[in-house]
Design a protein around this nucleic acid. Sequence first.
RNA 1: GCGGACGUGGCGGAACCGGUAGACGCAGCAGACUUAAAAUCUGCUAUCCAUUUGGGUGUGCGGGUUCGAGUCCCGCCGUCCGCACCA
Length: 854
Amino acid sequence: MTRETRFGALAADARWQAAWESANSFATTETGDAKDSGRPKAYILEMFPYPSGRIHMGHVRNYAMGDVLARFKRMTGHDVLHPMGWDAFGMPAENAAMEKGVHPNGWTRANIDAMRGQLKRLGLAIDWTRELATCDADYYGQEQALFLDLFAAGLVTRKESYVNWDPVDMTVLANEQVIDGRGWRSGALVEKKKLSQWFLKITDFADELLEGLKSLDQWPDKVRLMQENWIGKSQGLEFSFRLAGGAPGFDVFTTRPDTLYGASFAAISPDHPLAERLAKDSPELAVFIAECRRQGTSAEQLETAEKLGFDTGLAVEHPLDPDWHLPVWVVNYVLMDYGTGAIFGCPAHDQRDLDFARKYDLAVHRVIADGDEDGQVFHGDEAYVGTGRLVNSHFLNGMGIDEAKAAVIARAEHEGWGKGTTVWRLRDWGVSRQRYWGTPIPFIHCPACGLVPVPKGQLPIVLPEDADFSVPGNPLDRHPTWKHTSCPSCGGEALRETDTLDTFVDSSWYFLRFASAPADKPFDPAVIARWLPVDQYIGGIEHAILHLLYARFWTRALQRIGMVDIKEPFASLFTQGMVTHETYSRAQGEGLPPLYFTPDEVTRTAEGATLDADGAPVEVGRVIKMSKSKKNVVDPDAILDQYGADAARWFMLSDSPPERDLPWSEAGIEGAWRFVQRLWRLFGESENTGDGGEDIALARKLHRAIAVVAADIEALGFNKAVAKIHALANDIEKAEPSATRAEACATLILLVAPMMPHLAEEAWAGLPDARRTTDLVADAAWPAVNPALLADDEVTIVIQVAGKRRDEITLAKGLDKEAVEAAALARPRIAELLGGAAPKKVIVVPDRLVNIVP
RNA sequence: GCGGACGUGGCGGAACCGGUAGACGCAGCAGACUUAAAAUCUGCUAUCCAUUUGGGUGUGCGGGUUCGAGUCCCGCCGUCCGCACCA
């Protein structure tokens, strides 16, 4: 067979993908247990995609990274689990059903088929036998079983509550899914609606989920911090105010019980039951409350919102001095759904209270002083929130803040009017969705027996195939027959629950099902124990809170009921950056949005860009995340057709650090393509041994590259690994033919194999048998490093004079300081600079540099 | 407002633990090969002065610690991200 002078990527991609498939190369080695196989396990997982229909460049980047790691782990002797599946339930399928009249199942399955095909073209080392879609009855039936287990354990509740109702999607949203008062998917303004809802008691785990973050030392600090803020633990005092006259009042929560003597008013939320009660007899208050509710919740509105209040005329007794009465106001800045919906106002030491007090001319008393400022009247418009000592506070005077907090709590508990308590920002997870395309909640409403769990033997509760999607609302609820059933308990007529589960439930345990998927139960705990936790999880930062917090909760919930013995599902998390592209647009005149063009429609030059259709310039905009609306998208299929999988993968891994955004460019992919071809030519020289001699300098470079590339891949520093491989290729090309050079060419195949697997296979197949340890490079081992070749025996030492680089010498490695110093001072150039004078001081850093202070 | 991250050539970025700043790639310039183009190869490419050898400046800005700072400390400026009347 004569060797092609160009690497034919398209044919090679197909050839090797077929070869891997028929050799079953990426099937998981079931032992997965160092005890049995002697090999460590590596569970490499990328967040599974939603089957929207087409993959995008973000997927390519995400899966290329995971794939490099999975292939590298195989090469370094691990049993690897690297699966793929589909987060297949959710709104878009139902929207498609409504808009195009296709069934959600058919739409979803077709999308999965299309995307699977696209992913396979990337040549991913995935064990496709473990593929799952969350809309498989196999999968969601087991999810129903888990839901029943959690119910039995008291971790599922049903409560009547105000919910976030998305009027466009006609569904309920979790708090986390409401962004600036709008639905995260539809963008519609969210309304408050009272409904009976299913909840998972994530708040039971608030403390554990917070504490657990400390153990996740291989997670980005940023994500841990975001979760910590989300959980929002505050410790303080909860106490009751009595209305003056002795009538029962209301409870307040504060994190600053130390400032109680600085109180000058009490404030309740417009949604507080007391405010609502008072409003019945006060039309003015009713008007005020209505205005507060109209007030928006978006960032800008809150920023500029004025503190407004309504004096109820009521007064409450100060808990530490019953003769001291505080006026009760209804104010717009106290939220009903945090703490108790009521506070005491201490204007001197809380900015919001101070703004409010200044507006309504209320007393402002200093109770914390950081120096000699101890007058009772507080001046200025900036609250003092720093440290200090208590003043004007009777028995607290002179105490530090923490001491005073403890003293007030102790006194409250002793006298019985309050207690130390912890308040969380985290709410229970509302999982009810009034949708068709989700996991049916396995419960039955019986008029006689009430709420009855579906017996496990009757699972899965399958979605009906015939459903009407022509109008908004829940197709399950209006289905003519599906919800009618009999009660498992009394046998009488009963109705099925028609809510389905939030899709974040589906993604809270898919990583377990990948590891173990028996037919008769959700998973086999013994197999889970072998594979979990996931060793490397890779996905977008957009899941920092929702998905990752829910999955952590679900895992802990399963641990509590004894089904798994891990607390945290993901040992190491990596959040990759987005793929971005510049935009091309033309202004369309006043008031109109600009007209955007796709990269295909435009010719880009160094100076600017012109539209192919008319040859006139278009405006080159900022580099931003690829999005359909800005038309700055590049279709992976087109790239694969033109350049093949390896060039696409290589470019995705080059240049930008993986956690940062990657600017896509035509020049960049061209560069990757050229490098693929260059390597192909280089690999072709692998048998050119010249005179057969050794090239020790090249051998050193080779072995250093083997070690450094391995370390870079291990640390997910793909851009650095790419740079090192480039440098090594340069070095090999410059070297004269030799046995070492031939060996280096062959070894380079292995170094690029995780990133460019098709090219590697093609080149590997061209090697003589003597050089090939395995038929497929996919089964080959990572090259061994010869430690003796890692270090040079000579080093270049820089000579500085007064901290400035003036000269350099090459010396044997490991010389002692005196010898290095003498060698440096002996240099004519250094002697000249010193002008004959003895140096004041000489610093020698072994094998690195000499700094001479004249 | 609170919290966090980041500022290095024309661009993406590299630089171990404080020790040669700009690796590697892209773009650009010059040259070789070619009838020509593509492809490929070679060289140059932070900046200013001298242009042969060298010297000055330079990692957002201003200070500081140190023999030595992109890296550590203090204070600014800018960009991006997250949260948000959370009591």
